[in-house]
Design a protein around this nucleic acid. Sequence first.
RNA 1: GCGCCCGUAGCUCAGUUGGAUUAGAGCAGCAGCCUUCUAAGCUGUUGGCCGCAAGUUCGAGUCUUGCCGGGCGCACCA
Length: 560
Amino acid sequence: MLDDFLKEEITRVIAEKYGSTAAGVGFAIEPPPANQPGHFGTNAALTISKILKQNPFVIGEEMAFCLRSKEYAQAVDVIKPGYVNITLKNRVFKKELALLLETDNYFRNNSGAGINVNLEFVSANPVGPLNIVSGRAAAYGDTLANLMKYSGYNVTKETYVNDFGRQMHLFALSLMARYLQSKGMDIPMPEDGYQGEYVRDIAAAFDAYKGPDYFKKMGTVKDPATHNEYKEFRAFGLDYVLKMQKKTLERFGVKFDGWFSETSLHTGGDVEEAFEEIRSRGLFYEKEDAVWFRTTDFGDDKDRVVKKTDGDYTYFASDIAYINNKLKRGADLIINILGPDHHGYVKRLESIIQGLKGRGYNEHHLKVIILQQVNLLESGEKMKMSKREGKFVTLDELMDNAGRDASRWFFVMRNYNSHLDFDLTLAKEQSDKNPVFYVQYAYARICSVFEKAKESVKSENEYGADGVCFDKLEQEETDLVRAILHMPYAIRDAADKFAPSVLTQAVFDLCGVFHHFYAKHRVVQEDRNAMLKRLFILSALKKTLKECFDIIGINAPEKM
RNA sequence: GCGCCCGUAGCUCAGUUGGAUUAGAGCAGCAGCCUUCUAAGCUGUUGGCCGCAAGUUCGAGUCUUGCCGGGCGCACCA
């Protein structure tokens, strides 16, 4: 990466001239503003001037003097407060592009080498179709997983199936009621039951699966919750919904390494094992016949019940066991992606990891990411969603209207701490307002250029690094090359910040630079040297975009 | 009342550990560009007391405090 190379070079210069203390101060490498010279600029002189207590401009001049003698430097300028801008020789760019084209892992880095990450996301109740809130989590989590893999992390993508508690129970009762109603029985839906139309569909599927004799066998149903057949409805409903959710996610391009059942934590002894660990640290106590976790030790508002007076475990108990289970499976870093209604839960999760592993465990071991809410707009109006009432837009419906690519792009284009407005009307239009078309169009255009070039260039080898001349580059060519070479940096940055939006932004910018270049310069043309040079640059761009699209999980269309 | 997130252009958002005498994009608005590799594109232009007020600093959209406004959460529910 060129950014890294220059950072090392500048650090070396600082160390030689001003010593190791100054070299330890952070600084930025960034492209200078359009009206300033240079390919890369640094504010290093400004940041170290604080500890050196010297005029930053003088420091900048001294640094520039050292840098000018380097073989890669064409020119070095020092600008007003003390910015040092480096203009690189063109052959440096050519060499770097050649490297990009030759290496398989050019866009990868090692900042997360050897770290096992358990990345949990979606984790929806298995009681219905996935909605757009899960959609945002799915797109975000999947892209983050890809980014972290590019940074060398060993990532396990996992989703948690809440098949143990009250919601599952209500769903099973709802299903049973719909089934019995379809048989003409006057069975009311449970209070807070699931009213969605899809429950009737599942009841019909149950009926088809079991056959007509099943109903006769059931006898009179007084209390569905204690009826003999309750468990069968529950099992069937769970299985049906999970298959449905898996299908939706598959269509969305998201595949989990594991679907983890909450029930298995209770049947497999994980709960007691985890409790033992926390109890041994003296963090549990009994009060009013319930067991409490002293989470206030870790900054929580109040202590939390893990085992109720009636002997049942709370949902929090499952979480304790689940985190313990993840640790046992070798996770060094546990990432939880949660919905906006869960931020009160962060302290509790942090308490768990410290209760299990001891104090001092922090965000390097557990990172909770709260995805802010998705507002669904229709013609600019906010739509209200409620799962209970069965009024919500499903992820499938979204894909029907907007397509997978636009949906995924929209979900990750904003950072996780921003509310996301998703305008259905806009997405349905599939118009140029949609940024995903802008970037895909760039890719299709490049493919089109290569198609056209076949008429005048026999073999791809002709525009390999050896066959092209970089002595002279147009401004738009230099801009394009710089934008391409910035991408590995953007990928690492996006992973470090858990922010896929950094990548979509960089891709969008890169495509803008390309469209600008395309409008100004022809690729296929009489001047053979210029043509080959541009084909060389575009082949690097094509590879770059393809990799970025793969990370984001969108298609790279050759024609549009 | 307490806690978390957020207030930047008409709308949706960028703005890296404070720094380029001019705060950036996209959409919307206005004005242009297709005998030439895809006009889903390009070019130009309009539009900002960066919520308000103090403080720290040579320097604040960025840090501190207070206030105002919006969203969400504060269960022996999940």
